[in-house]
């Protein structure tokens, strides 16, 4: 019996991947797993799923620093003997990478990208990364002040997409609209912002897993069918697309990526393919990959344990996922314990 700890239990309308990863792990062939939840807030829905997590612990927010995280995980480890930990939340990754050796000394194994790999696919550096590795990234300009806008607009043309440093994007059609959006986004997310060429087309995603030597073990392409108003997929379908798989392969080779990743892509009417973002973790829809024959979380488990993993075969195409809003019923005591004592 292996004990696996997971973050990202926030299965909300902008979901973390933890619940989906947990679900895939429960179906890992030939493995019995015991799951420990790690959450940042006491109402992360995954905590309240019946029979999913043997125990859940609150973690200090990443803003409290890596030392606080290590201290908390040391406490958890004394009680749980975690074998493998799978971080599912972007903002915490830098800490886990920094703590990799310390956690290993406690007996906790992980499969993570390196600090350089994490930095190289950052929004601000993605264009540079794309140019260096011949990966198609839409033309992007960093805006450090409002005065940078005219030059960016002249180079990119109208309309263009303005993106916050961490989240949020807006398509603007005129200089006046751009200026207003610029100030709004900067007030929210700070400088710099990104101005990106506006592209119209089909949104596609690829969930991938690579072992760190340049070999891609799995790539599952998915087309989004419906979107929430936050642009998150609410339904999607696995597809067969050589170009997407090849792109994931090129990414894994070029970056020697270690661990899970998600490519967010866009294909124009002319058939051009662009990488919009590279996420350094499993996507929230990763259970679809397992359902399509690529149980990437189970494979990650084997890699983290140092076991050999053979590349997956073909993806079962035409598998659909449809997210379902479903109300869990819980006892208040459950909430009191996690909010008051930090564990339940």
């Amino acid at each position: 019996m292996l004990t696996i700890a997971l973050t990202g239990l926030n299965a909300t309308d902008s979901p973390g991947a933890g619940v989906a990863v947990a679900r895939a792990l429960r179906e890992a062939p030939g493995r019995a797993v015991r799951l420990v939840g790690l959450s940042y807030e006491p109402l992360e829905p995954g905590i309240f799923l019946p029979d999913f997590f043997a125990k859940t612990y609150l973690l200090p927010y990443p803003s409290a620093g890596s030392a606080a995280l290590l201290e908390r995980l040391t406490y958890v480890q004394e009680r749980e003997q975690i074998d493998v930990l799978i971080p599912c939340f972007d903002a915490e990754l830098a800490h886990f990478i920094r703590l990799e050796a310390s956690l290993k000394a406690l007996g906790i194994r992980m499969l993570l990208p390196t600090a350089n790999q994490l930095a190289s696919r950052d929004k601000l550096r993605l264009a540079e990364f794309g140019a260096a590795h011949h990966l198609p990234v839409p033309a992007t300009h960093a805006l450090h002040q409002p005065a940078d806008l005219p030059a960016a607009a002249a180079a990119l043309g109208w309309p263009l997409v303005l993106k916050g440093r961490w989240y949020e994007a807006e398509t603007v059609h005129t200089a006046a609209a751009a200026e207003a959006a610029l100030l709004r986004l900067a007030a929210r997310w700070g400088w710099p912002l990104l101005a990106q060429r506006h592209l119209v087309g089909q949104e596609l995603n690829v969930a991938g897993l690579a072992e760190g030597q340049g070999h891609l073990l799995s790539a599952v392409p998915m087309r989004k069918l419906t979107l929430t108003d936050k642009g998150k997929a609410w339904a999607g379908i696995t597809i067969e697309d050589e170009m997407l798989t090849e792109l994931a392969q090129r990414f894994a080779e070029a970056s020697r990526w270690r661990g899970p990743f998600e490519l967010e892509l866009l294909r124009t009417a002319a058939g051009e393919l662009f990488i919009l973002e590279i996420n350094p973790r499993f996507p929230a829809w990763i259970y679809l990959a397992a359902a399509a024959g690529h149980n990437q979380p189970a494979a990650l488990l084997s890699l983290a344990l140092g076991e050999p993993v053979a590349p997956f075969g073909p993806v079962a195409v035409g598998k659909l996922f449809i997210r379902c809003a479903w109300d869990l019923i819980a006892d208040n005591e459950h909430f009191q314990l996690i909010a008051g004592l930090g564990e339940v």
Partner: peptide, 14 residues
């Protein structure tokens, strides 16, 4: 366990 619940408001306290 030291928890306080106010049924009128739904608030819990430690």
């Amino acid at each position: 366990a030291g928890f306080v619940f106010n049924p009128a408001t739904g608030d819990s306290f430690a």
